[in-house]
Design a binder for these strands. Structure first.
Lengths: 190, 190
DNA sequence: TTTTGACTAATTTAGTTTTTCGGTCAATTA
DNA sequence: TAATTGACCGAAAAACTAAATTAGTCAAAA
C-alpha cells in the first residue's frame, strides 16, 4: 500500500497551521509531520502559499456544504438567509484553523493570512449573491443590487456574531434572528 | 494681550496629530509649535493621552452638532437616521485628524489610537440610541433592543461607506440611501 | 521516475548600543 | 508669589549587527 503523500502533506499542514498558525509553520515541520522529504512537498505544491490556498479552498467547500445543509426549501427565503449565514459564521468561529488564522491576523497581521481571510469572505459573498439572484428570479424578493446586498448582509451578521462580542456578552442565535428579522422582514417603522 | 496658552497648546497638538499621527507627535514638537515651554503643557494636561482625549472629545461634540444639523423634524424617522449617520461618517472620512488616526490604527496599531477610535464609535452608538429611544416613546417605531439596533445601524453604514471602498468603487450617498431604504423600510421580501 | 535532505540566499530573530521621548522640577521670569 | 521654562532623567524605542532560521533548489539516492 503506497501511502498517499499528497494527502499526508495536506493533513500535516492543516494540523500545523491550526496549531501554530501560518507564519510559525515551517516547511521542514510539515515534511516531518507528513513523514515525507521536504522536496516532495514541492512536487505537489509550487510553494508554501499554494499549499495554504489548497487547504483554505477545501475549507470553503466544507463551509458551503454546511450552509446548504442549513437551508430548508419549505421555509421562507429570509429565514433561510438567517440559517445559512448563521451556520457559516458558526463554522468560522468553531473551526480550529479559522480561529487560529483570525487570531494570527489580529496579532501579527501576516499578509498571506489577511489575503486568505479576505478570500474566504469574498467566497461567502459570492455564495450569498447566487442565492439572492435565485430568489429574485423566483420572485421571492424584489430585484436589487445583489452584490451590495450580499455584502451588507454578511457584514451585518459579522457585526452581530463576531464584532459585538468584543465589548459585550455574545448574542444567542435567537437574539440575532430577532434583530435580523426586523431588518429583513418589516424594516424599522411601524 | 496675554496669549491663551491652553488654546495654543490644543491647536498645536491638533495640527501635529493631524499631520503626523499620535505616536509621531512629540511633546517637544507640540511645545515648539505652541510657542510654549514643554512644562507648560503639563500644567494644563496630566499627560499626552489626556491632551489627546480633550481633542477627541471636542471633535465628538462637533460631530454631534453636524449630525443634529442634518436632521429635519418634518422628515420620517428612517430618513433622518440615514441623514444623520451619513453625515457622521462623512465627517469622519473628511476630517484630517480622523483620517490620520484611522490610518495610524491600520498601519501601526497604536494602542491609544485604537482606544480613542473605539471611544468615538461608542459615542456615536450612544447618540443613535438616544434618537431611537425617543422615536420609540413617540411611537414612530416599535420597541426593540435599542443598544443592538444602534450598534447594527452604525455597522451597516460603516460597511457601506468605509469597508466597501476597500475593494470596490465608492458608493454615492444615493446608492447608500437606496440600499438602506430596503432594510429600514420594507425588508427584503415582497 | 520519484523521493530525498544537504545546501543556499534571503529573511527573521536575538542581542546590544544608541537615540529619542514623556514627564519632572529647580531655576527663571513676570 | 505664581506662572513658565527647558535642562535633565529613566524608560522605552530605534538602529545596528551578528546569528539563526527558513523557503525553495537540485544533485544524488532509492
Amino acid at each position: 500500500m503506497a501511502p498517499d503523500r499528497r494527502k499526508m502533506i495536506v493533513e500535516a499542514a492543516t494540523k500545523s497551521f491550526s496549531l501554530f498558525g501560518y507564519k510559525a509553520t515551517t516547511m521542514d515541520q510539515v515534511a516531518k509531520l507528513a513523514n515525507v522529504g521536504k522536496g516532495t512537498i514541492y512536487t505537489f505544491f509550487k510553494n508554501k502559499e499554494e499549499l495554504f490556498e489548497e487547504i483554505i479552498s477545501s475549507i470553503v467547500k466544507e463551509m458551503i456544504v454546511e450552509a446548504d445543509a442549513a437551508i430548508q426549501p419549505n421555509l421562507p427565503f429570509t429565514e433561510n438567509v438567517h440559517r445559512a449565514l448563521y451556520r457559516l459564521l458558526e463554522f468560522r468561529s468553531q473551526h480550529q484553523l479559522m480561529i487560529k488564522l483570525v487570531q494570527e491576523e489580529a496579532e501579527m497581521g501576516t499578509l498571506a493570512v489577511s489575503e486568505m481571510l479576505q478570500h474566504v469572505e469574498n467566497e461567502i459573498v459570492v455564495y450569498l449573491k447566487q442565492k439572492i439572484e435565485l430568489a429574485i428570479t423566483k420572485g421571492a424578493i424584489p430585484p436589487a443590487n445583489t452584490e451590495i446586498t450580499s455584502y451588507l448582509l454578511l457584514k451585518m451578521y459579522i457585526a452581530l456574531v463576531s464584532d459585538w462580542e468584543r465589548n459585550h456578552a455574545p448574542l444567542s442565535s435567537e437574539q440575532i434572528a430577532d434583530i435580523m428579522k426586523v431588518f429583513l422582514l418589516q424594516g424599522l417603522p411601524r
